[in-house]
């Protein structure tokens, strides 16, 4: 079979892909935005947030981890799937303590930006109001766990890039939470440093540099001037401190 040009259909449109690409990667490369939160172009897809859910030949699956396969029929922007994605983002707002107006990351937060993109105007469900103390022990870094969406990007970056294993997950189900690599449980007692990759991958406002707050004023930040889809399609690796894609 000649397969010079491999394609699947995405909401009826042919999408080309190269061997090894997942559906999400092929869609982004072809100019179609797929909302996602735990996906990061520099890391192997994780598949946990499920915001990128699509239907492949009628079966619901995460597009970030599903290999693109020639001839597949993929649904992305159906009403059902849009509702599902919106629900999942509402779940994440419900699960943590997200107070956008007073959050240092407002405008640089992917959760907020994807929320706007999907038309999320409220958490919808009764908030769970978890008790998640802030860890301010580190001289240069603040760990604001109230905002954690458990995407494991910091876990992955610290293990795979920094080779430090500063972060890990403990608990399970709704009690799942981020822990740091110290018997005291304090970030100050780990070997995290501000140059680490783990410092720059958080899609929300958990891992923050101290003494940098509000350096870029609200209104001039990445997602104040660009939508989540523009940033994702530009191939940007998430928001930058300068507010540029």
């Amino acid at each position: 079979m000649s397969d010079e040009r491999k394609t699947f259909t995405l909401d009826g449109q042919d999408v080309e892909f190269t061997e090894g690409q997942t559906i999400l990667q092929a869609a982004l490369a072809s100019g179609t935005y797929v909302p996602s939160l735990c996906y990061h172009p520099e890391f192997r897809p994780h598949g946990s947030c499920k915001v990128c859910t699509v239907k492949v030949n009628g079966r619901t699956t995460a597009s970030c981890t599903t290999p693109a396969t020639a001839g597949d029929t993929v649904e992305l922007a159906t009403d059902d799937l849009k509702d599902l994605r919106k629900n999942l983002v509402q779940f994440l707002f419900t699960e943590g303590n997200h107070f956008c107006p007073s959050c240092e990351q407002s405008g640089n937060c992917q959760l907020q930006a994807v929320g706007y993109e999907l038309g999320v105007v409220s958490g919808h469900y009764n908030p769970l109001f978890p008790s998640r103390p802030v860890d301010a022990s580190h001289p240069d870094v603040l760990l604001e766990l109230n905002r954690c969406i458990l995407c494991e990007l910091c876990v992955r970056a610290s293990a795979l890039v920094d080779r430090k294993h500063v972060f890990s997950l403990s608990g399970r189900g709704i009690t799942k939470h981020l822990v740091v690599n110290a018997e005291s449980g304090r970030l100050a007692d780990t070997n995290l440093s501000v140059e680490d990759k783990a410092m720059s991958v958080c899609p929300v406002g958990v891992i923050l540099r101290k003494r940098r707050g509000f350096r870029v004023p609200i209104g001039e930040r990445t997602f104040d001037t660009h939508t989540a889809s523009e940033i994702a399609l530009a191939g940007a690796r998430g928001p930058t401190e300068d507010g540029a894609p």
């Binding site: 999942l88 419900t94 469900y125 009764n126 769970l128 608990g171 189900g173 799942k176």
Partner: peptide, 21 residues
């Protein structure tokens, strides 16, 4: 289900707790 959710994916992690509530 809320007790036994592994907590990896959002729908089960949060959804089972909302269901229980």
């Amino acid at each position: 289900f809320a007790h036994e959710s592994c907590g990896f994916c959002t729908p089960c992690r949060v959804g089972t707790t909302l269901g229980r509530q």
